[in-house]
Amino acid sequence: MPNLIDLAEQSSLRENELKFTVGDTVDVHTRILEGDKQRIQIFTGVVIAMKGSGVRETFTVRRIVAGEGVERTFPLHSPKVADVKIKRHGRVRRAKLYYLRDRIGKATRLRERRAKKGEIETHG
């Protein structure tokens, strides 16, 4: 018998797979509803964590706004996340970059790495 839970989740999974990883600097395009008009808002920052699996998978993006660290966690498969564009691949050795929270200024920079085979070239 097929796994009925997987079957139920199937329809909620994203059709276009998003290829990015922890350490990447990304533009997250989110759909915002204002009244009955829809527009795209962009949140730019470093992906510091990816959690969960299947339909419950989420990723956390950190950026500094007016000297204050701001983190947003997005459900990876949410239809409200229109697109994730990679601006820069960061060279990291950890799956969770929570250490960035304790750093300020220049110390938060991540060394850039070249795109691996099959990875999207950065556009920023």
């Binding site: 839970i5 139920a8 759909r31 339909v55 459900p75 949410s78």
Partner: peptide, 19 residues
């Protein structure tokens, strides 16, 4: 009862469901 999970509605709302 198979178990619980979550699915997205048409408008992008995430709802908890029992399969």
């Amino acid at each position: 009862k198979i178990g619980m999970t979550q699915v997205y509605r048409e408008g992008g709302q995430l709802v908890p469901v029992t399969v």
